[in-house]
Amino acid sequence: MSLTTSVGLLVPLVAKPSQINAVTDFLLAGYNLLPSEPLTRQWFAVKYEDSNPPTYAIFDTFAAEEGRQAHLTGQIAKALMDNASELLDVSPEIGQLNVLVSLIRPISGGGSTAGVTKGLRVLFTAKPDKVDAVRDFLKSAIPLVEAEPQTTYWYAVEFPGTNTFGVIDFFPDDTGRGAHVAGKVAAALFGSAEELLTGAPDLIKLDVIAAKI
């Protein structure tokens, strides 16, 4: 099956301090429900490192809008809404996004985390007259990412109607993540921030709880 994606969701989950373990258990239960959603192409459950309050997120992708809508009306979304008031400090905000370009290199025998343990979530807002330039920059970054063998899954995304873009990517371990942060893609993005963006990119390190490719 093709792994190509065009749309996705990013759903941060701010846990009640007393429910941290329960949120982790909920996300693992969501992973086990994925066979009921054949149109969900890739799915990641993560924890934001060093976050206060404790924050988790689900990032998932779909080939087309049909798959996204099936997920939003499926068992995982229903379970989240049914348990949100008990587990979360605030109601989850569902961020709908377009996947501009992605690089997906599945790891054989990756298990319940698809072979990755660490990730990054980097969000940034383009200046109004630089939206096209930021979009083009992200689309052109694929050759640089391909040269990073430890960058296993890489997604450049856009949140429609907001001028906000992002990069969400995953690595086998912290060494791979460190190599990416010190690499050419990150250098080009941060080096262009003053020209293209309204402010510095917001970078959050991720721990992977579960993933399906």
Rank of each mutant, 00 (worst) to 15 (best):
M1R: 09
V7P: 02
L10M: 12
V11H: 00
V11T: 13
V11M: 09
P12K: 09
V14L: 08
K16N: 11
P17M: 07
S18F: 03
A22S: 11
D25P: 06
F26R: 12
F26L: 15
N32D: 15
A45N: 02
D50T: 15
S51P: 08
N52D: 15
I58A: 07
F59P: 00
T61G: 08
T61Q: 05
F62L: 08
A63P: 07
A70E: 11
A70W: 11
L72K: 06
T73R: 11
A77L: 09
M81C: 08
M81T: 14
S85M: 13
L87Y: 04
V90T: 10
S91Y: 14
P92E: 04
Q96H: 06
N98H: 14
V101Q: 10
R105L: 07
I107A: 08
G110Q: 07
G110C: 09
G110R: 08
K127C: 04
D129V: 10
D129M: 10
V131M: 07
D136W: 02
P143W: 08
P143R: 06
V145S: 02
Q150M: 12
Y153E: 09
W154K: 02
A156R: 02
V157W: 00
E158S: 14
P160T: 04
P160C: 04
P160F: 03
P160L: 06
F165A: 05
F165Q: 04
G166D: 00
F171P: 04
R177T: 01
V181A: 10
K184G: 09
L189G: 07
F190N: 05
F190A: 03
G191V: 15
G191A: 10
E194Q: 13
L196K: 05
T198D: 00
T198K: 05
G199W: 00
A200I: 05
P201D: 08
P201T: 09
V208P: 00
I209F: 10
A211C: 05
